[in-house]
Amino acid sequence: MIEYKNINYKYPGAQNPVLNNLSCSVGEPGFHALFGQSGVGKSTFARMIAGQLNGFAGEIEGREPIKVYYSYNLERLPGWSGVGEHIDKVTPEANKSRINEIVESFGLSACIGSGFSKLSLGQRNRVNLARYLLQDFDLLIMDESLANVDEATREQIIFKIKEMFPEKSFLYISHSVAEVSRFCSNILVLRSFIKRPQALTINGQDDVRGKQVVKKDLEETMLEIVNAS
């Protein structure tokens, strides 16, 4: 688990900080969410967690043993390589046995022989997420990684991720209140830098395959998130 204490960050040349005394913890096993309105700093914070952003002030504890990957929805595969060939090439030997399972459950069997540029946006995002899931990670940040994927497929993918990686940690960034309320265990709601505290943690319904989420509980969670943000 990574604990962040009093994190401050301002983009060079910006008038206001993006992160202002932010304190929270991430990296606990399970499927969690980072939620917030556009521009509150979700991607900035995600990049910071992944170690891709420097120049911030504050304390970070327990970072070292954790291997963090950050995937986002605009990533592309190199044009010279087919989807299947690329996935095979970038998957560590120990995880190769998982390729077929992930490809099939993500509905990507038909795409495996194609070039990335020939795929739809939803297929591209699924392929990109699949190659990250095949890496050796402790925490995977999914920054709108399932954008442009239909609701039923998204549900299947999230259930599959939960079944396949119960010991790993996921931080799912999405703008859908209903989705994060239903599927996520903890929802870290990031708010504007003027609000105190800047981040609040709300318990989600953590839906898994076969479990029936009570509609009233789901609505309460959604209301809590909306009120918090």
Binding site: Q52, Y69, S71, E75, L77, P78, G79, W80, V90
Partner: peptide, 25 residues
């Protein structure tokens, strides 16, 4: 960035691959 990000953060980026990606694109 959209292509290189994965290679950089998975520790696979080599200068030959970087040149190949940029030349191809």
């Amino acid at each position: 960035t959209d292509i290189e990000h994965f290679y950089i953060h998975s520790g696979r980026m080599r200068w030959q691959l970087e040149v190949k990606i940029r030349a191809f694109e």
